[in-house]
């Protein structure tokens, strides 16, 4: 499966919908989107990974790169993910301590609202 990307903004929070496989072939597209969003002033990003079938360290690198970019603007990059197969690589790499990871977009939006 290829990678499908979409995004929309709700109340200063930009939700990035990702579907498919994030690997060495497709990750550059996600990186370009995150860079473009930050360049256009979107500094609070929520990446919905619920429809991601595969994520490798290349994809992790893109997410970390996005996080570094938004943090440079006092922003945030958080994730929605409940799939064990995807969460596993975050646990292996210790990145569960770096990213806020939520069970649903609604849960993340509530937390974002509280933090504002």
């Amino acid at each position: 499966m290829d990678l499908k990307l979409d995004h929309h903004t709700e109340d200063r929070l930009t939700i990035v919908e990702v579907e498919g496989e994030i690997d060495v072939y497709t990750a550059p597209r996600l990186r370009e989107l995150l860079i473009d969003l930050v360049n256009k002033g979107n500094f609070h990003l929520l990446v919905n990974m619920e429809k991601v079938d595969f994520l490798d360290s290349t994809g992790l690198g893109v997410l970390v790169g996005g996080l570094k970019r938004v943090r440079a603007h006092d922003g945030s990059l958080e994730l929605v993910c409940t799939q064990e197969r995807i969460l596993k690589i975050f646990r292996i790499t210790g990145l569960t301590k770096v990213f806020g990871i939520y069970a649903s977009v609604e849960e993340a939006k509530e937390a974002h609202g509280r933090d504002k």
Binding site: R31, G61, V64, G65, K68, T93, G94, V98
Partner: peptide, 15 residues
Amino acid sequence: VNGTELASLLPADTL
């Protein structure tokens, strides 16, 4: 691998 410190160790967008 050490959580938050990892991000600062990365030389670029890729791990």
